[in-house]
């Protein structure tokens, strides 16, 4: 069992303490150094309050996504990584299709990893910026519940924004 006061010592001690994260979607397990996993505030809270067993189950996050999250945490737990290195590594992690990005933003939100949430949200924003509305609706699973008249009224309300927009 891990407890809060030991965390720091263990992080620098020669034999590193590890945690096992298990995706509850497909039961994939990941063994990670504790200081890497603790970048997630959610996991940190669990460990601090002794709620974490030897294996920490991670609900709603697939193994594929969890692997990406852990990759991010590893990069950012490396004290010798320069800002440039981290930027490049982040760009690599978010170079994914929009659906993976949405899963990733949900994972970052659930695990409470601020930096990952930021880069993923930004990437999503960049990806949907120039898409036609119908595509954005599909991505987010939005059903257009406006009547044509209502939609026209909404558009007319903000003509400046919609100027030259299909």
């Amino acid at each position: 069992m891990a407890s809060a006061p030991e965390n720091e010592k263990n992080a620098s001690a020669p034999e590193k303490k590890t945690l096992t994260l298990k995706s509850m979607i497909n039961n994939e397990e990941f063994v990670v150094d504790e200081h890497v996993a603790l970048q997630s505030v959610t996991i940190k809270n669990m460990v601090d309050s002794d709620c974490a067993g030897d294996v920490i189950p991670v609900p709603t996050i697939s193994g594929e996504i969890l692997a990406l999250v852990i990759e991010y945490c590893k990069n950012h737990a490396n004290p010798s990584a320069s800002e440039d290195d981290l930027k490049k590594a982040d760009a690599g992690i978010v170079a994914k299709d929009i659906y993976t990005l949405i899963d990733l933003v949900l994972a970052a939100n659930f695990l409470d990893i601020k930096g990952l949430l930021e880069v993923t949200s930004q990437k999503i924003a960049d990806s949907i910026k120039d898409l036609p509305h119908q595509d954005v609706r599909e991505i987010f699973g939005v059903e257009n519940d406006y009547t044509p008249e209502e939609e026209a009224a909404v558009r007319a309300e903000h003509d400046w924004a919609f100027e030259g927009f299909p």
Binding site: N109, A125, V136, F140, V142, H158
Partner: peptide, 28 residues
């Protein structure tokens, strides 16, 4: 859509240029 809280969507919108964010009101 059920998983993406409004606050998360607003956060993503806040990273768009404001005119693009305002335009998303025609989605639904």
């Amino acid at each position: 859509i059920s998983d993406l809280h409004d606050s998360l969507l607003v956060h993503i919108l806040s990273l768009l240029p404001i005119e693009d964010a305002v335009k998303t009101q025609v989605l639904s």
